[in-house]
Design a protein around this nucleic acid. Structure first.
Lengths: 124, 124
DNA sequence: TTTAGCACTATACTTTTGTATAGTCTCAAG
DNA sequence: CTTGAGACTATACAAAAGTATAGTGCTAAA
């Protein structure tokens, strides 16, 4: 297992192995910004069309939705398929990798919940 | 266990439970930006003083270091202790929560590494 | 032939995030 | 009484991220 925790015991920060840094950066890119997680969540819920996504993600503008979908596609998290020309029909889907990102999201939620409990104890 | 994966099977995006959303936001705040992860990593490596951190984190300016340390302190990830007035000596440390964030970082690295392998297979 | 739906794109901003560079404050040693 | 170290702060600026609003190109039905 390659992990940050292990590396911390062995190496210096500045000598942290490049593949780990790259992996981290990839993940950060996959979730960063205001809209990536909401889009991924909506895709999980079977919202696969542009309009559909726009209606389900509160206050997102078409510009942002378009921009973010493109980025997610470039990063291999989402696929874009043309299903029909008339009416114009396009389907966005999560790739297998895109689906696996739930593992990261779960780790984030776990930490967040535990952290909140710890914070409440601290303040009282 | 409260997880995103479970929620996805039961609920609508827009009805996603607030505590989970808050937990996610907390975690995002803990890692977001250019400098939070490098600072956390340096703290793990026992760099506990301002100057020390500045020397070990490449190209960070004192303004950014100061700003980020303050945010990390507010978010309960780092503590700041005054150890001496002369010479002025201040010690930054990760809280227990701050240390636990390795779990999130490990999940990110895991996903990133697996994702890269998947991407390479796709392109050849 | 106009209207309407879908999937966007274009332009012009505003806000947030990060950079560059210099300066402050406090003490202590030379 | 100047110099230097440590831990910052201040000001100005540049770049990135996000918002607001309007418009495009295609087709199909009224």
């Amino acid at each position: 297992m390659n992990s940050f925790t292990e590396v911390l015991q062995e190496e210096e920060v500045n000598h942290c192995p490049k593949p780990l840094i790259l992996a981290l950066k990839d993940t950060m890119n996959a979730v960063k910004g205001k809209w990536k997680l909401p889009i991924i969540a909506a895709l999980f819920h079977g919202k696969n069309r542009f309009k559909n996504l726009q209606e389900n993600i509160e206050k997102i503008t078409p510009r942002m939705l378009s921009k973010e979908l493109k980025e997610l596609e470039i990063n291999g998290i989402v696929t874009r398929r043309v299903l029909g020309q008339s009416p114009l029909l396009i389907e966005y889907r999560l790739t297998p990798s895109g689906k696996n990102i739930t593992k990261v999201i779960d780790a984030m939620i776990d930490w967040g919940l535990t952290h909140r409990k710890a914070e409440i104890k601290m303040t009282k």
